[in-house]
Design a protein around this nucleic acid. Sequence first.
DNA 1: CACGGATCCTGATGGC
DNA 2: TGCCATCAGGATCCGT
Length: 271
Amino acid sequence: MPELPEVEVTRLSFAHRIEGAVIAHAQMGKPLRWPLGCQSDVLHGQTVNAVRRRGKYLLIDLSAGLLLVHLGMSGSISFAKDLPSPGKHDHFDLLTSRGTLRLNDPRRFGAVVFALSEQDMPAQKLLGHLGIEPLGNDFELAEFCTRLKLKKAAIKQVLLAGEVVVGVGNIYASEALFLAGIRPTTAASSLSRPRMARLHCAIRQVLTQAVAKGGSTLKDFSNADGQAGYFQLEAMVYGRAGLPCKVCASPIKNIRQGQRSTFYCQKCQKC
DNA sequence: CACGGATCCTGATGGC
DNA sequence: TGCCATCAGGATCCGT
């Protein structure tokens, strides 16, 4: 999936164009991860007020409720006036006065869910446990450290879980840990304060850069205009198993943590 | 109750 | 060419 940067780039690419649009209706394809949770006539006539992001969720504010959109592992969104009729992997179309918002998601781990408000179910169920926004003002070092101290699992898995900080996925977790010089297997709670501070900084840095570059780390990512991601921001460690570290030339290691691959440099990331 | 593992689904890739 | 195994950006649920 798109990690936070790709979701944010997607949001930026269509938010301003869809705001103010009036919804005609929604068309569903194959079932996604969760059901929409409302009848199509609930959406009819509603106005799109804004498009926000929380973690990897897009929140589409409507005049009476909101849509929570998640891209899962393989989802992407397009928004255009004239889209061709839905293809094999187009599973949600929102037809509006300004154009059609379409979710294409081959693996269908993504979802579109309606809720009456952010405090209501099912929004609360999806958003309630989420950690701090890494690019917002609330991402303070003290709070980050306090939360890490409570987690005894490996730091890589703590980052992925999203209960401390949201938006860091499998690629950027490896990248941030490399930048911070931290071994992915180290227990989160055992990190010293200075190392937590380096990680705090690294997370912000890696995500900010990725957003600025257009979410370029993803192979097949494209924003809502259909512009492809272009691998501008090259990974330091992700996907580079066996290749020389760009800093010290020692071969990059690839291990598995919780069924996900992790990449690190054993020399640059000693503990 | 915090953690590890299985799980949802489709497509791409590589070995034989 | 086909067949099979493995892997892929996520996050929930279930058992220990």
